Structures are given as C-alpha cells and as structure tokens.
Amino acid sequence: MKAMWGLAGILAGTMSFGAMAQDGCPNRGDLDAAYCDADKDLVADTPSDPKKLKSPSNLAFTFTPLEDSAAYEKLFKPFTDYLAQCTGKKVGYLSLSSNTAEIEAMRAGSLHVGGFSAGPTNFAVNIAGAVPFAVIGNQKEYQSYTLIMIVRKDSAIQKMPDIKGKKVAHTSSTSNSGHLAPMALFPKIGVVPDKDYKILFSGKHDHSILGVQSGEYDAAAVASDVFDRMVERGQIKADAFRIIYRSDKFPTQAFAYAHDLEPGFRDQMLKCFYDYRFSDELKKAFAGSDRFFPINYKKDFFMVRYVSQSAGESFNRVAYDKQVAKEKEKK
C-alpha cells in the first residue's frame, strides 16, 4: 500500500530544537544548536544517547521539489518498492512544495531520506541535520550540471551584457544555479544581478524555463540538468531556446539521510541505495546515470559552498530564518 504523508504531519512533528542541544559539544561550526560536529566533517554526528536514535517503521522518501512532484513520485516508484523490500520497512513518497518544506520535514523528523537540490543541501545539513551520502551517477563518477542562462531562440539577446535592463528570472534565493551562482559568477563578466537587471523569482526551474518560452521573462538562470530533463520528457524543445552562458560544473543534487537514524538500520539502508541499479525510465530521466554514487559532503560540495560564500551567503540559523521570512512575505 502507498503510505501517505502531509504537511500537517511535518508541522505536528516539529520540536523545540534549542532544548535538544547536546551539552559539551566541542564543535558545531554552522550547525544548529541541536547538533554536534565533534569530528569536524561539517555534518551532524550520530547522537550518542540511544534514546535519540530512530528506526522508523514507515520510511519517508522524497526527491527535490523543484519540478513536477507527481512525475517524480511515479518515476521513483520502482526504487521505493525496492527500498521497502530491501529494508523491510513501509516506504512512502513525501510530496513537498518547496526547498524550505523539505528542510523542515527532515528537521521535524517527518522525512528520513531524500534528494536535495545542490544549494539547499547546505541548509539541510546545518538546519535539519541532513547527512549527504550520494549523488546520482554511474560507475565512474557522479552526475554534474552547469548554470545556464537561457533566452528564446528568436530573442534579440545574444550575449550576457544584453540582459541589462531586461526581465530576468532566478528560481529561489537558496538555489545554487538559480540564484547563488549567478550572484557570485555574473559580476565577474560584467553583469551584476539586482543592479543591471531586477531579479524576478519564479519559484522553480521549470517555471523559469516555461516563463522564457511564454515571453513572461526575457532570460532565466537555470540548472542545465533540469532543462535537459524537460527536453527529454517532451515538455520543451531545445531548439526553441538559446544558451548565452554556461558555468563550470556542480554536483546535481545530494541524497541525504537524517542524522539520528539508528546506525544498524542506517547502514542497511545505505547498502540498499548503493546496490540499486536504476530502471530504464530512471536512467532515461537522468541522462543514462544508473546508480547512487557515494560522496563526501565536505569534499564534494566544496564548490557549492564556495560559490555561496562568494555571493555573500551563509547557511547558518540566522540566514535560514531570513530566507523563511522572505518566502512568507511573498505569499
């Protein structure tokens, strides 16, 4: 049977995390007060108190909520069925509407494992105790993507300086390719976001892409992998657009588990992830990638953190609260 989970359950599970602070923690870095990073690997340590460890009977899984949630629930169905069989747990797909909702779900204990977009991964680590362990990839390497600036093929915009004064879409303020990377990289080529053009937040990469197609936006900064998947699914035609900028590569996303999963169950679950080979539909959706490739957050997400810091962004509690407040103002 399909397990059902909702936002009400997420909110009901929210606790007072200040009260959970681990006394005597030698190092936290940017982690929230609920967590400790004694080994300085930048992620939350497993709680030393056995009473704080979880081995849920219903395992909640999700994928980054920046695209069509229903499509990805269907796409990952063979995997969630396999994960249920492999772990002996019921597995439900948790449909979420935003990066913030996904972070809050893990922080509240309503999400146990899932895929986070590259930029929000940093907030998930620091605010929700997420521990990244994999990126979609193949036998040799994990999948990567680039920041691209797209315009319609019939647009008069030919190069980056031409977007000055135009209607340009970013996705959300926590998105790596959809905001943080443009803020850090564009000034180096003579275009300063929110000065040379007004930032218009679309909310999602697919909204930005479709907005350019419809003429709502003159240009949009988006993730290349999202663009490619929309082409693959037939939602857009690649030759209807022109790419006027492409950055260096970033990891596409991070699959992360909640830091307080019981170690025996956690290790069993991780083996299930690493042993799984994608269905043909999943391979098609992810450009031929066929597995969850192991990663180290401290090493493999260095460039994502660097871009964010270069853009003047941080991923601590103060920055997160500001982000949440901004999102509420827009509703």
Rank of each mutant, 00 (worst) to 15 (best):
M1C: 04
A8Y: 11
G18I: 05
M20H: 05
D23Q: 15
R28Q: 00
G29D: 00
L31T: 01
L42P: 00
D45E: 15
T46C: 08
P47I: 07
S48K: 14
K51R: 13
L53P: 03
L59R: 06
A60R: 15
T64Y: 14
A71E: 14
A71D: 14
T80Q: 06
T80F: 11
Y82E: 12
L83H: 06
L83F: 10
A84Y: 02
C86S: 01
T87C: 01
E102L: 13
E102C: 08
E102R: 09
G109I: 08
A118N: 13
G119E: 00
I127P: 04
A128I: 04
G129T: 06
A130F: 05
Y142M: 13
D154Y: 06
K167L: 12
A169D: 12
P187K: 03
V192R: 07
P193Y: 07
Y197K: 11
D206W: 11
D206K: 14
S208Y: 11
S214V: 05
S214C: 04
Y217L: 13
Y217Q: 11
E232W: 03
K237P: 03
A240L: 08
F241A: 10
T252R: 09
Q253A: 12
H259A: 12
E262W: 06
M269N: 00
C272I: 00
D275C: 03
D275V: 02
K283Y: 04
A285M: 03
A287E: 15
I295E: 08
I295L: 07
K299W: 01
K299F: 03
F302V: 01
A311Y: 06
A311V: 12
R317M: 06
V318S: 08
D321P: 04
Q323W: 10
A325Y: 02
A325M: 04
